[in-house]
Amino acid sequence: MNKDKDAIIKVRNLKKYFPVKKGFLKRKVQYVKAVDDISFDIKKGETFGLVGESGCGKTTTGRTIIRLYDVTDGDVIFDGTNISNMKEKDLSSFRKRVQMIFQDPFASLNSRMTVGDIVGEPLDIHKLASGKERQERIYYLLKTVGLSKEHASRYPHEFSGGQRQRIGIARALAVDPDFIICDEPISALDVSIQAQVVNMLEDLQKELGLTYLFIAHDLSMVRHISDRIAVMYLGKIVEVAKSEELYKNPTHPYTKALLSAIPIPDPDVTHKRESVTLEGEVPSPINPPKGCTFRTRCKYAFETCKNKEPSMKNLGGDHTVACHLLDNKK
């Protein structure tokens, strides 16, 4: 396949199960299937959005790809190297190229370290710079994210949420990575600050040629920043498409429902549009429904959905969907 050539990361049949332990002997009785057999490619320089409700496994996907969790099964191929079974000590060169920005800027910065040390820590760990060079690099990074060098000697509690998220971004940029996983980087921020951070992420991507995996539940922001979007439900990817295509032509019933649930800041439009309210909640990933996992909430579900798990079908133009309804249409 030619397409694979410029893919920076390839995920193949990735699974991540968490054991549920019970009893005195802590026997593993069941598994939470947080990520259950997903595959996708992310191309160099693009932003790949991952959306879904809480508990659908989007954060676990991000953390498994970066090997914060061990892979249960499947492959993660980063730039030609399979990292899914690599030993921790061999991972360090990979970690230099892949970084993460976390959701909660209040919990992800060590409150006992100065901002300079937080941003400089990756440099120390990977022995990239020391002494004066390290200092210069820290100032440069702070400037890149719109802070000044006076901020280096301060502590995280002196900063607002938006500024803290900038510090988190500076830390991720410290090792000069190629690929950054943004795990809900803006959901803890105010609306007026969200736009600042999103614009900055876009600028950095252009300047430094970064590739992003952007995880979020806010679909309007994801569509704004992403080139392609994958929709996850209960550990599985149900639809992948270019972001324009996904919004213009959502095909999976779950994608449709998600899109129609987003409130639109326009009174006339929001009063007129028809919305598909999704009843109920996400079933437990310990015992996901057999067949199509979405069938319990899907109003189009029919007999086949109960028995057979739908496979991904290509609708052309990079648009793939996993739904039995497509077989019925002629």
Partner: peptide
Amino acid sequence: KSIPRLDLGEKKRLIPITGT
């Protein structure tokens, strides 16, 4: 200005409110 509009099918740069 600082919120993206899903329904309008345009992809313009967001205009944030600067400062805090």
